[in-house]
Simulated scan of single mutants.
Amino acid sequence: MKRVDVAYVLLYDNDGENILMVKNKGSHSSYYTLPGGAVESGETLEDAAIREVKEETGLNVELEGIVAVSEAFFEERRHHAVLFTFKGRIIDGEISISLPEEIEEITWMDAVTAKKHAYIPIMEKEISNNETIVPYVLRGNVFHTI
């Protein structure tokens, strides 16, 4: 299996209630994820996350840190993906689909609905002195492509 690093960005609306999701066109069916995608050769995780959000949504973001690291096996594509999810903040831009061959829809979803469609990381536990544990998740075999 080929190792693929993927950078996602968790973005909340101004009220902190809704999460920005993109609907990806898959080989068999469409599916929702956080904005993000594969890290290109020579690119940092942060650069990839910022670039992918811009490409998929038209928005410019600042990153506030990693909120989760997970792994998944995409058997169909023979990929072993390590997924890094950053928390981000929109700094400017307007929502638009610039890659209609890849992205079908961009939408704000309440957190409960978003979590039904995609893995949405949450801070699991407080340690002390305002430090948090970043969750690691082994997601196993996944049947849609990245």
Rank of each mutant, 00 (worst) to 15 (best):
V82Y: 12
V82S: 03
L83P: 06
F84S: 06
F84P: 00
F86K: 02
F86R: 12
K87N: 13
G88R: 12
G88L: 06
R89C: 07
R89I: 04
R89W: 03
I90W: 00
I90L: 07
I91M: 11
D92R: 10
D92C: 04
D92V: 06
G93D: 05
G93M: 00
G93Q: 03
E94Q: 13
E94I: 03
S96L: 07
S96W: 00
S96Q: 14
S96P: 05
I97H: 04
I97G: 01
I97V: 11
S98A: 13
S98F: 10
L99C: 04
L99D: 12
P100Q: 01
E101K: 13
E101S: 11
E101G: 09
E105R: 15
T107P: 04
W108F: 06
W108C: 02
M109G: 05
D110L: 10
A111K: 15
V112E: 15
T113I: 13
A114E: 10
K116A: 06
K116Y: 05
K116E: 05
H117N: 11
H117K: 09
A118S: 10
A118G: 09
A118P: 07
A118R: 08
Y119D: 03
Y119M: 00
Y119A: 00
I120N: 07
I122K: 01
M123R: 14
E124F: 07
E124W: 02
K125L: 15
K125Y: 00
K125V: 14
E126W: 03
I127P: 02
I127F: 07
I127V: 13
I127A: 06
